[in-house]
Design a protein around this nucleic acid. Structure first.
Length: 596
RNA sequence: GCCCUCGUAGCUCAGUCGGAUAGAGCAACGGACUUCUAAUCCGUGGGUCGCAGGUUCGAUUCCUGUCGAGGGCGCCA
């Protein structure tokens, strides 16, 4: 019942700005329903005969908030009227009178700037947040979205490289769920292949129950490395034979494999729990073992495959560049498994979109896969998206598992937690449950430090940066949240709770207060941008900006000691900020502590 | 050789649809805690947006070329 055009319809109605990679249209993200925007553009339309829709398309946010909340560039209008833009701007400004929404209309060069009244800002934004709470910014995107993410290899330790796919997929899933989509998270585990022949062979020679209990992944990895590095042809031969036997259902070997798999899942599970990562399915490559032949048959039926040098290939594009589906010895490949998996997912979940959160190096692989899927069914054309991302590297060069210069996730977390404990000792030694808070802070810093970067870029790994808790970091955002919670707590002790009935919107006219409200009002649009671009870093930078403004507010605008009326109003504002900071972090997979 | 991505302050990065004097953080220097947590705030210095063309009233943004970095290119995943 759902196909990509249905989604596009749904998306266009609900989120006009939502554009999926690979599509041609560039609808204006800012045209999303927004009271202030509509108010301003409808008034411009009334006096200038420029359609409101067109005015909305160019209405922008001024570079300096001092200029106002919105700005209308007059270049288009100027051309229509054959008159210089600054002249048109001052004419337009003179035609637009202030009202209870717009406090000042000023022409500045070719722009007309609009400054909103504090009372309209406050009465539009604050009640909405107060009533919707953690549901603020929710939408009803009626779509099913499958997200393939994290997908580590079993029996190997997680490295910092696994972090990207995991946190990106998690954040995207959370945002889409918030926007109303049904999200199917899939951990497509690397749990099959010749490597497991080596692992089982190695285990039979060097395996130790004791070591396996103590640190399963480390032990299995040692064995794997040992077996792989071995020059002994007998080991190589045994490994090959073992895997072949596994494929044919050899019970003793499969039992071992099953055990290693579940031990790995247990270890990964602790990390996923920390990050609030959940999956609807953890079916890995092995699961698709028996689903490849039918998939290949489907392709063959349509005459899409050919045989070349004894191998089964799919010829790509006009140059017929072959994508290899079956080796000349008859064994299958990564692409074959992904094809089977994709078809299975289509059948099982009937998704509108399937996102693969996988690194940039596999771009070509997905291009091949998506081309084949589109050839099978034209409806698949825009359904599949490779959410690609850059790699972690050192300033000196690349990380490489083989040469051993990798950073393991476990170590990053451990050092982060230690660092956070030192910081707590120094800043807030009376804090209860320091272990938990230190963990939240460290994990937040690591996750945020990743997500704050545009995913297409490589990330230079530096310990000092990962362990930094000041400046543009998760702890900075968390601390703003902690300050807000502190104020709420103090006032609660006085018996004062945030109460919309006591909001006096006209009093929140301080520059910091205005900026806070503007930012809070932009939260829903920010979520749409994340969904549209599949780039959570927009939300991360939004949160930094909101936190920064709130820290300034804390510095200059006392709540407890404010006059009656202003005090209650600032309390409501503080509550709204706390709500959005905590919600925003949560959508990134980060839990915000109440104290730190 | 062909294809993909990136290049913005000393360093790490933002910059929305092409729009106003290109913004943060770190590092450096100078200020602000008897006050709701100073993991904070304020100030100073720091830029040929890799380079050259093109499109445009207007380009960090779009196009072409070029240089630099990284990645990919039939029997790995």
């Amino acid at each position: 019942m759902t196909d990509s055009t249905t989604l596009q319809r749904v998306v266009n109605r609900r989120l006009p700005g939502l554009r999926w990679p690979g599509t041609r249209d560039h609808p204006n993200p800012m045209s999303k329903h927004n009271f202030f925007r509509e108010h301003i553009t409808s008034r411009i339309a009334k006096v200038s005969d420029l359609p409101a829709e067109q005015a909305a398309r160019v209405l922008e946010i001024p570079p300096d908030p001092k200029l106002g909340e919105y700005a209308f560039p007059c270049f288009l209008l100027a051309r229509q009227r054959k008159s210089p833009p600054p002249k048109v701007a001052s004419w337009l400004a003179s035609q637009l009178l202030c009202d209870d929404v717009v406090e000042a209309v000023t022409a500045q060069g070719p722009y007309v700037n609009f400054r909103l009244t504090a009372s309209s800002l406050a009465s539009r934004v604050l009640p909405e947040i107060a009533t919707t709470q953690a549901g603020y910014g929710r939408s009803d995107l009626a779509a099913t979205i499958v997200i393939d993410f994290s997908s580590p290899n079993i029996a190997k330790p997680l490295s910092i490289g696994h972090l990207r796919s995991t946190v990106l997929g998690n954040a995207l899933g959370r945002v889409f769920r918030h926007l109303g989509a049904k999200v199917v998270g899939i951990n497509h585990l690397g749990d099959w292949g010749t490597q497991f022949g080596y692992l089982v062979t190695g285990w039979r020679r060097w395996g130790s129950e004791e070591e396996l209990t103590r640190d399963p992944i480390r032990h299995l990895f040692e064995i794997y490395v040992l077996a792989n590095a071995s020059e002994d042809p007998a080991i190589k031969e045994e490994a090959r034979a073992t895997f072949k036997a596994m494929e044919e259902g050899d019970q003793p070997s499969l039992a071992l494999w099953q055990r290693f798999r579940s031990l790995s899942l247990q270890v990964f599970g602790r990390f996923y729990e920390d990050l609030g990562v959940t999956f609807e399915s953890q079916d890995g490559e092995a699961f698709f073992n028996d689903k490849m032949e039918p998939a290949l048959a489907l392709l063959a039926e349509k005459g899409l495959t050919t045989v070349s040098d004894g191998a089964l290939v799919y010829p790509m594009g006009p140059e017929k560049k072959p994508a290899l589906l079956k080796k000349s010895d008859g064994s299958t490949l990564y692409l074959t498994r992904d094809l089977a998996a994709a078809l299975y997912r289509l059948k099982t979940y009937a998704p509108d979109k399937v996102l693969y959160v996988v690194g940039m190096p596999q771009k070509e692989h997905f291009r091949e896969l998506f081309t084949m899927l589109a050839a099978l069914d034209p409806a698949n054309k825009d359904r599949f998206v490779h959410v690609d991302f850059g790699q972690y590297r050192f300033a000196e060069g690349k990380m490489s598992t083989r040469s051993g210069n990798v950073i393991f996730l476990e170590e990053v977390v451990a050092r982060g937690v230690e660092m956070a404990k030192v910081k707590i000792e120094e800043k807030n030694p009376d804090l209860e449950d320091r272990e938990t808070t230190a963990r939240l802070v460290a994990l937040g810093a690591i996750v945020f430090g990743d997500l704050v970067n545009d995913r297409v870029k490589d990330i230079v790994f530096e310990w000092e940066k990962v362990l930094d808790f000041e400046g543009d970091t998760a702890p900075y955002v968390m601390f703003a949240h902690v300050r807000a919670r502190g104020i709420l707590r103090k006032l609660a002790e006085e018996g004062v709770e945030p109460d919309l009935a006591r909001l006096q919107p006209g009093l929140l006219g301080h520059e910091h207060e205005r900026r806070l409200m503007v930012a809070l009002g932009q939260f829903p649009e920010t979520l749409d941008t994340v969904a549209r671009t599949l780039k959570p870093h927009t939300l991360a930078t939004f949160l930094l900006e909101l936190a920064r403004t709130y820290h300034r507010f804390c510095h200059d605008c006392p709540v407890l000691k404010a006059e009656p009326g202003l005090k209650e109003s600032r309390l409501i504002l503080t509550h709204a900020v706390a709500t959005v900071l905590s919600l925003g972090l949560q959508l990134l997979g980060i839990r915000a502590p109440d104290r730190m």
